[in-house]
């Protein structure tokens, strides 16, 4: 295996490189600031360590955790929710669009009028049919109540000539024929 060029360089040769020299000067120049920052970091670490070791703080934290519902499961759920955020955003956008559409329909007088007209168009024929059936039924009931005639064989024979009775009988006859034929084939 070949050795890299960097590994072949000695400390002396590296230190004589202008870019390294420049970097060292800059580093030395910034040393006071770096030292200051390191002290602050050290203070922060000390403070953190002291806080962790402080029994009173630990007790307070325990009490907060005990009184809340936050558990490991809660944190896991939070992570899962974050993972699902892109999908949830998509669903929220769709729901928002649907909500805005419904709101716009509700607030739009011209659309409401259009919907009203369409509903009427579809409902009117059905309403007329129901009305016709109800009137027919009432008329039949009234006539039955008023009719005190005796139904005779002659009346039955007159019925047979009625087209609607004929149609019904033909329907029955056809049903009997079809049933007989199918039974015979079995």
């Amino acid at each position: 295996m070949e050795r890299s060029t960097t590994e072949e360089q000695t400390v002396e040769t590296v230190l004589t490189r202008p870019d390294v020299e420049q970097a060292l000067i800059s580093l030395v120049d910034r040393l006071p600031k770096i030292e200051q920052s390191l002290r602050r970091l050290e203070d922060a670490v000390d403070f953190g360590m002291a806080t962790i070791q402080d029994e009173e703080v630990k007790d307070k934290l325990d009490r907060v955790m005990d009184s809340s519902n936050i558990q490991v499961e809660t944190l896991e759920a939070a992570m899962q929710l974050i993972e699902k955020l892109p999908m949830l955003l998509q669903v929220t956008n769709q729901l928002e669009a649907m909500f805005d559409f419904a709101k716009d329909v509700y607030q739009d007088e011209e659309t409401k009028e259009l919907i009203g007209r369409r509903v009427e168009e579809y409902v009117t024929p059905a309403k007329e049919k129901v009305e016709w059936s109800r009137a027919t039924f009432e008329e039949v009931q009234r006539r039955v109540a008023e009719d005190d005639r005796q139904i005779t064989l002659f009346s039955l024979m007159k019925w047979l000539k009625e087209p609607s009775v004929q149609h019904g009988l033909k329907y029955m006859q056809a049903t009997i024929d079809v049933l007989s034929e199918r039974s015979a084939k079995r």
């Binding site: 559409f101 739009d108 011209e110 659309t111 259009l114 919907i115």
Partner: peptide, 17 residues
């Protein structure tokens, strides 16, 4: 006849459909 006009006026022109 009945639904596409509604989707047009209240959905498409509002940028929701």
């Amino acid at each position: 006849k009945d639904f596409l006009p509604l989707l047009y006026w209240n959905g498409m022109l509002n940028g929701t459909m």
